[in-house]
Write a protein that binds this DNA or RNA. Structure first.
Length: 210
DNA sequence: TGCCAGGCCGGGT
DNA sequence: ACCCGGCATGGC
């Protein structure tokens, strides 16, 4: 059985702090979490920049926009039609249940909130957990394609195991720590990008070794 | 130039 | 409960 804390320490020694999530406010982070689904972050930045230019990076502004208007602004992020709908669904929930207040949403019980987020069309486990960890500072570990890639390449877990099993791996062996979960996931992304380029991670460039 | 990027939904088995 | 096609832009 691998020691996941030691894996973290190796990654941190190799790459240092990653300063995640790039975003100025909890609301911006939540929007970014939806826009970045299966999409390069650079494209998401262009979309967010468009929203800012139109002074539209707020729950109320997006609430008042039509799906068509919103989709044009977020076009660079790809899948813009479907993401516009997803964003509107999230905003509607955010307005209805918390009157557009991050503080009120943050005040809700974490697991109850997670279930509610998963009930929104367009928000799956990774997006929900990204919002909980990075926007709301809740100790929830985020699993993504990079995390699965790194762990499976090292035979720590099979790639096709379900999301919840990957997540449980971390929750059951690490102390619930927002800072740790934040940095750890960001480091997986950093490492995972290198693995992709190399195809074979089992070389001296891999911080985790063979 | 084709491949890939910080997923998720809905319909079909 | 799983499987799969669809969704789309921009960078290399």
């Amino acid at each position: 059985m691998v020691n996941l804390l030691k894996v973290y320490q190796k990654l941190f020694q190799s790459f240092g702090p990653q300063h995640w999530w790039p975003g100025d406010s909890p609301f911006e982070i939540a929007v970014g979490a939806i826009l970045t689904q299966n999409t390069n972050w650079g494209n998401v930045e262009k979309a967010i920049s468009n929203l800012k230019k139109q002074n539209a990076l707020s729950a109320m502004a997006i609430h008042k926009m039509t799906v068509r208007e919103l989709s044009e602004l977020i076009r660079p992020s790809g899948y813009f039609n479907i993401k516009a709908k997803r964003l509107k669904c999230f905003i509607e929930f955010f307005m209805n249940d918390y009157r557009g207040s991050i503080k009120r949403m943050k005040n809700e019980d974490v697991h109850s909130l997670r279930r509610k987020l998963l009930g929104i069309s367009g928000i799956g486990p990774e997006t929900a957990d990204s919002i909980l960890l990075y926007a709301l500072k809740k100790p929830i570990f985020v699993i993504d394609a990079y995390t699965k890639r790194v762990l499976s390449r090292h035979s720590i877990m099979e790639h096709d195991e379900p999301y919840e099993r990957f997540q449980k791996l971390f929750h059951s062996s690490l102390k619930e720590d927002v800072k740790l979960f934040n940095e750890y996931h960001a480091l997986f992304v950093r490492a995972g990008k290198i693995y992709c380029k190399l195809k074979n991670p089992l070389c001296e460039k891999c911080p985790l070794g063979t």
